[in-house]
Design a protein around this nucleic acid. Structure first.
Lengths: 190, 190, 190, 190
DNA sequence: AATGAATGAGCCTTCATTCAT
DNA sequence: TATGAATGAAGGCTCATTCAT
């Protein structure tokens, strides 16, 4: 890997933190200069706006999200286990220190109209994964027979709501657990 | 009403629109000057920051929200009707041209740490109202027997999720309707 | 006395304090509005700038300074007593809470070139008084025979220096007393 | 020397002039921009307030003031010569085109309470030098036997008074000369 | 006389962005 | 590639001043 590429990864890594702390809009190129210890010119050689940096982060993010779901389904892992794992991931996201990042993504989507497709895509992607799980649960007779499209949207929306709220309100782990239980009871057969 | 007060209301009215369009952070005092046709100094006489203006709007909002719910409950209006009405209001919020306002409130909460209590309060308030309705539905035997605390949080979160998403993604009215139906089926008996 | 005149005196009285606290330049019409509890318009009816107010204060000051010196000389009060009294007044000025006022006058003179004559006049006036005392002391044989012009300038300058310094440095009462003693020893015979 | 440092010295050099002309308070960053032909941002890169600039000037001033007095004393130069030279310097300060600077320093001290120690320090420093000269004069039997502490304060105060006045009043060179003579007669033996 | 709403000018400050080195 | 000096635009804020009431 060349030095330039390394620098770029370094910039992105540092930037995520800053975005998670301050949101998307509030971050300035100056902030990133300081965080990366790069000079103005040095940073501009690689990226010429926060928008560009943010976009680069999103791109990488999507790449990384190669789904393991397919694998575990093939391995006949019980649907409940897979689903529980999925929920655990979401809980993690709502409680961890990336709460801010979640907000930043929303802000980005709101501010940069021309980039909304990103969000759409990401949401679509998440939907695909969840639907796969739900369908698999149906087939294995572990899950109740809801309309999958509606149900997956419902679940994603609740989870989104939780993540959004948690970046902005004080939400206890217990509250989240109760919601997760609620969802599980909703779809598990007995 | 004195002239000053009138001007202040006018400022708030115009500002809501701007916040709904641009979000919280992106709005400048200059924007508000332009929208209200006030000079710099004229505006500053009444409010000295967008934060102050935003806060004033929220304050008024809370005042206005005197609940009609108590009334209709006393009038023995069917719980399903009340609840349906509540949902209709939320749908309206998600589709109307104040989508942006909802996002702005989130942004405000994220940016102004010292004002988070506002949001907490508002959410708490909304929760109280919803719980009243759900309890009433229980008592009248119209609603299933869920744990009210959990259920109300669940519903609020979904609705929040929908409103949040709609300010940022392209969500069809149909999708929202399906979610509303889903919620109703979830709690109505038969 | 008419109401208007009363208001004006009130404004001047309050303003002196403010000038003594903040100096001349730093005082704004707004400050004076606040101190006098007058509205913008109310204040402007009487004075339309801080310069005007300051000038008015100076004018009054000069009026007030009708010299008692002539009287006491006629009453054959000992020169040493008169001079000691004069020095005591200066000490008072250096220690009292009008230290700031003294600075403000300097500032005014520096800033408003067209008003420098005021200062010249005031200094001239003070010089006249002091010279009267010195001359009287000579004649009575109480004071040494210095050149009066030079001596009076010297004394005034020291006292001025003390007053100036005291508005800006931390000068002890003892230090001032020593200077006063020094001056007295300088001119008293034996 | 790097370019940045050069610019900073240039800024200070130009600023002294402006402060001497307008005093401390009245100077704006804009004034300095114009005088240095720097853009707003360019200036701010180096100094972010007139206070900072003024402080920097004072700092440099103190550095520069390495006393030559010690040297000349060692070389047994007559005390009268040294003292006369000292007085000449003060006369120069009172008449030269830096009159305004002297006032600016006072203004600075008055306005910036947190920086008063500067003035105290400078005055103390000046006192040390003068006392050295006076003591040396005593020892060589050239000067009368006054209390050195009191005498040095007296002289400094007169000189200060002269410098202050000259920035604000019209004082002739002759007047200053007479004061200088007066001081010399005061302390020289015969 | 007095009030306080409104204007507009002037200065402050911070960045995105460019560029010579 | 990287540095950091410099520019200029954008927005913030505070007043002196005017004016209708």
């Amino acid at each position: 890997m060349k030095k330039g590429q390394k620098t770029e990864e370094f910039i992105l890594k540092k930037s995520i933190k800053i975005f998670a702390e301050k949101g998307y809009t509030a971050v300035t190129m100056k902030d990133i200069c300081e965080a990366t210890d790069l000079s103005r010119g040095g940073l501009y050689r690689h990226y010429s706006s926060t928008k560009e940096i943010f976009t680069a982060i999103l791109d990488k993010d999507i790449e990384d999200n190669g789904s393991i779901v397919d694998e575990v389904i093939q391995q006949k892992v019980p649907a409940k286990v897979i689903f529980a794992h999925f929920l655990a991931g979401e809980k993690e996201a709502a409680l961890g220190n990336n709460k801010g990042w979640f907000f930043a993504v929303h802000e980005f989507a709101f501010m940069e109209n021309d980039r909304r497709s990103y969000l759409d895509e990401r949401v679509f992607h998440a939907g695909q994964i969840l639907k796969k799980i739900l369908r698999y649960g149906h087939e294995k007779g572990e899950f109740k027979k809801f309309d999958i499209e509606t149900l997956s949207f419902h679940i994603l929306t609740v989870l989104d709501g939780i993540k959004t709220s948690s970046s902005v309100l004080s939400i206890s782990e217990e509250t989240i657990d109760r919601q997760i239980d609620f969802i599980e009871e909703l779809i598990y057969i007995n």
